[in-house]
Design a protein around this nucleic acid. Structure first.
Length: 842
RNA sequence: GCCUGGGUGGUGGAAUGGCAGACACACGAGACUUAAAAUCUCGAGGGAGAAAUCCCGUGGGGGUUCGAAUCCCUCCCCAGGCACCA
């Protein structure tokens, strides 16, 4: 054994050992004590930094811990390998995306190995390989069969910089989430997945996901955005000139039908489909078209902000409030969104902030239809809309009802009279999956002049990406310019036909990869349903919170769709989810924290750190940096603590190796122990208890590591020193060996080495996680904290489990107590057994 | 505006109704050394005091309790999510 901690040598040795012994490879046919432990697979962009490392290190700790608890742990790894960056790189450097992606994968794999994180590598998948995307295409066809994949023309989000369309989920504050360019609206024919068909189930089943952070469930619920309301049709007052209308009513959606007797006008969105026809030939026509033109010039991103002043014009038309029978004017307003509800809103200025504002701007009438509890609402004295629930007033036959009740009764009335009904509304839109780019899975569809849209037959999959294309961002997929790819015979009639040139959003690839890991080499199907049903759902999923909506919602949708196709028995993919926080680095110029990125120039590479400190030290610091669910600041000095700690553990093993080995045969005997040995023995078991709690609970590894440092301090402080044998030796060995076992999930290389050096057969992974010995925790005497009126005044050492009367008597007799209760009556003494006594005096 | 989290020494953090600041970093003093590194020992929330000891202290204010960083109310600030959503 070397005196100086030889981390580089040890790390290479044990990394080879784990791989050679195939300790992380499992046979999926044995499902006893199964645990599927999954890390979100990375996009192989370039080298990993220490921020990425947190995810893999946490996952590795969980996997190793579960293995030590006797579980059969499946920990696969793979690559989310399609995507824009590789294609953008191809445009600027000319390197083919396949070449750069495969090179990045090799590089990242080496880095993962050098961190000591282990996976079941034979299950590795890469979504850009034909044997993977073949099944992505197959899943597309399955969705198409069930009409969950469809093609439609719709206004879509277009990123001019990425030259492709984006899903709603990929638009953040009106900009592309990837490149931050402002998103434009385009009317295009695109492929969609009908995720809205699952909106209600995706919402309801969030309740099943008790193993997920509440925050993520809330975010998904907000995203789905269910609201319950009433659809009400307002009949159009026929035109004075006698011209017929295409539709004879304007439907609107409201969540507050209880306020409808206060409706004094109606407003439609500038994009309202029938608007042009409604005003055709009227004196207002020119004003309306000018307004619409102006409103539509404002970008969607700008229109969504409150900053835009509410504007509108009168259309010249009237509609009839079906509850009152009275006509109200129809306006067009820039604050009405076409994509929500019907694109028309009933306006109740007295009870809606926006309508209040608009009515004041255009001098429209305001009518009170809800009273508050104290009945003191008076339009003359109101300076804002009253938007809370209340009691209906001025509401004809519905007057005097509580809002809730009024909504129920009035909706019922609408249904009975045939002018409306209850309606749910979701904010969630269908998932736009077409991308006008090369580096993705081709959509397996052929267009034939006589047969129309024809899905590629399953036995003709995969639709391979052509190798040679021109990577030019033209706004159309590079595939469209590739004749060899595009020209195809119609699978149905054999006539010349054209392929779909768009590829799929990469989130499609990542919506099912957890199934492919289970049958990675199956050439006959995407996955084996039996194996999937045995191993799914994933027991523990670990990844970044930035995927809270996109990836996690899409994967849930896929799983439910597969469930409905009877392809799998489960309907949620991930049982427990852990979302780790980002590692950030402070910018020296502005003192702000930023997430690590090449553009910010604050990337910390693990390579040099592993070279200078060793992988175990880097792992330990990454875990010790803070609670893993929170963001943390990486500092270069911070690594010194974990570094010193591991060097000290090594040094102590080196210095005390003979003692530790000699004590192998000795048994720990509580009865004959010295007080110092007894204290160390207790500390060992307290540490087991604390560390186990951190492992089982919220993964508070920072606290587990602190407890292990504390145990090491106790080992060094127990009085065993030098070479002379000591009666404490048996406990000393117990303490050191326990430290090695408990530490091994965090710093596996050094622990494997020490475990062997202490005379045990490898691997430490096969060692049992230690159990707490309750007897070891017992104490003969305990220190009682003595308070007077809640303030700490003294401490008292007493026999453990001393009865309350005796303790109270001792406390009352203390001079410190007497001093602080002088001149006061002692009213009572609160006793917390073995902990505290509080003397209440006054 | 609404919904989540969060605010504790110079710093990262610990304590989820019972000793605030565990464990570390940085810092200071000392030991070892020709010197440095490494290592070891000691110190340290703020204030008063020679000391014993006392007072103050977990974003501000109020409350519940024998006792509050922890529970409740309210306000301020920070981060994330949603947002003219009818």
């Amino acid at each position: 054994m070397k005196e100086k901690y030889p981390y580089a040598e040890i790390e290479t040795r044990w990394q080879s050992y784990w791989a050679d012994e195939r300790l992380f490879e499992i046979d999926e046919s044995d499902t006893s004590d199964k645990s599927y432990c999954l890390m979100m697979f990375p996009y192989p962009s370039a080298a990993l930094h220490v921020g990425h490392g947190r995810n893999y290190i946490i996952g590795d700790v969980v996997a190793r811990y579960k293995m030590m608890r006797g579980m059969r742990v499946l920990t696969p790894m793979g690559w989310d390998a399609f995507g824009l960056p590789a294609e953008n790189a191809a445009i600027s450097t000319g390197t083919h995306p396949r070449v750069s992606t495969l090179a990045n994968i090799e590089r990242m794999k080496e880095q993962l190995t050098s961190w000591g994180v282990c996976y079941d590598w034979p299950r590795e998948v890469a979504s850009c390989m034909p044997d993977y995307y073949r099944w992505t295409q197959w899943l597309f066809l399955k969705l198409y069969e069930r009409e969950l994949a469809y093609r439609a023309t719709a206004p879509v989000n277009w990123c001019p910089s990425c030259a492709t369309v984006l899903a709603n989920e990929q638009v953040v504050d009106g900009a592309c989430e990837r490149c931050e360019a402002p998103v434009e609206e385009k009317e295009l024919e695109q492929w969609f997945f009908k995720i809205t068909a699952y909106a209600q189930r995706l919402l309801d089943d969030l309740d099943k996901l008790q193993g997920w952070p509440a925050k993520v469930r809330t975010m998904q619920a907000n995203w789905i955005g269910r609201s319950v309301g009433t659809l009400v049709e307002f009949a159009l007052v026929p035109r004075a000139d006698g011209r017929p209308d295409d539709d004879d009513d304007v439907p609107c959606y409201t969540t507050r039908v209880d306020t409808i007797f206060g409706c004094t006008y109606m407003t439609v969105a500038p994009e309202y489909p029938g608007l042009a026809q409604l005003v055709e030939g009227l004196p207002e026509q020119d004003a309306v078209s000018a307004f619409v033109a102006k409103a539509r010039r404002v970008s969607r991103a700008d229109r969504i902000t409150d900053a835009v002043e509410k504007e509108g014009v009168f259309t010249g038309r009237q509609v009839i409030n079906p509850y009152t029978g009275n006509p109200v004017p129809l306006w067009v307003g820039n604050y009405v969104l076409m994509e929500y509800g019907t694109g028309a809103v009933m306006a109740v200025p007295a009870h809606d902030t926006r309508d209040w504002e608009f009515a004041h701007a255009y001098d429209l009438p305001i009518r009170l239809s809800i009273q508050n509890e104290s009945q003191d609402l008076d339009l003359d004295r109101m300076d804002a809309a009253y938007v809370e629930a209340g009691t209906t007033t001025n509401s004809g036959p519905f007057t005097g009802l509580a809002s809730r009740e009024a909504i129920a009764k009035m909706t019922e009335h609408a249904l009975a009279k045939g002018f409306g009904k209850a309606m749910e509304h979701y904010r969630l839109r269908d998932w736009l999956i077409s991308r006008q780019r090369y580096w993705g899975a081709p959509i397996p569809i052929v267009y034939c002049d006589s047969c129309g849209t024809v899905p590629v037959p399953e036995d003709q999959l995969p639709v391979l990406l052509p190798e040679e294309v021109a990577f030019k961002p033209t706004g159309e997929s590079p595939l469209a310019a590739c004749d060899d790819f595009m020209q195809v015979k119609c699978p149905t009639c054999g006539a010349p036909a054209r392929r779909e040139s768009d590829t799929m959003d990469t989130f499609v690839d990542s919506s099912w990869y957890f199934l492919r890991y289970l049958s990675p080499n199956d050439e006959s199907r995407a996955f084996d349903p039996e194996v999937a049903n045995n191993w799914m759902p994933v027991d523990q999923y670990i990844g970044g919170v930035e995927h809270a909506i996109l990836h996690l919602l899409y994967s849930r949708f896929f799983t439910k769709a597969l469930h409905d196709m009877d392809l799998v028995a489960f309907d949620e993919p991930f049982e427990h989810l852990f979302t780790q926080g980002m590692i950030q680095k402070r910018n020296e110029d502005d003192g702000q924290l930023y997430k690590m990125s090449k553009s910010k120039g604050n990337v910390v590479s693990p390579d040099e750190l592993i070279r200078d400190y060793g992988a175990d030290t880097v792992r330990l610091y990454t875990l010790f940096i803070g609670p893993p669910e929170k963001d943390a600041e990486w500092t270069d000095q911070g690594i010194e603590g974990p570094s010193r700690f591991l060097r000290r553990v090594w040094r102590r093993a080196y210095q005390q190796r003979e003692r530790l080995i000699a004590a192998r045969s000795e048994t720990v005997d509580v009865d004959s122990m010295s007080p110092a040995a007894r204290d160390l023995h207790r500390k060992v078991h307290e540490t087991i208890q604390l560390v186990t709690r951190d492992m089982e609970g919220d993964f508070h590894f920072n606290s587990a590591v602190a407890h292990l440092m504390d145990l090491m301090n106790a080992i060094d402080g127990c009085g065993v020193d030098g070479d002379a044998p000591s009666p404490t030796d048996a406990v000393y060995r117990e303490a050191f060996e326990t430290l090695v076992i408990l530490l091994s999930p965090f710093t596996p290389h050094i622990c494997e080495e020490l475990w062997e050096q202490l005379g045990n057969a490898p691997s430490v992974l096969a060692a049992d996680w230690p159990a707490v010995n309750e007897a070891a925790l017992a104490r003969d005497t305990v220190e009682i904290v003595v308070q007077v009126n809640g303030k700490l005044r003294a401490r008292l050492e007493v026999r453990a489990d001393l009865d309350q009367e005796a303790l109270e008597a001792s406390v009352r007799a203390m001079p410190e107590v007497a001093k602080h209760t002088a001149g006061k009556d002692i009213r009572r003494v609160v006793i917390v057994p073995n902990k505290l006594a509080n003397v209440v005096a006054g």
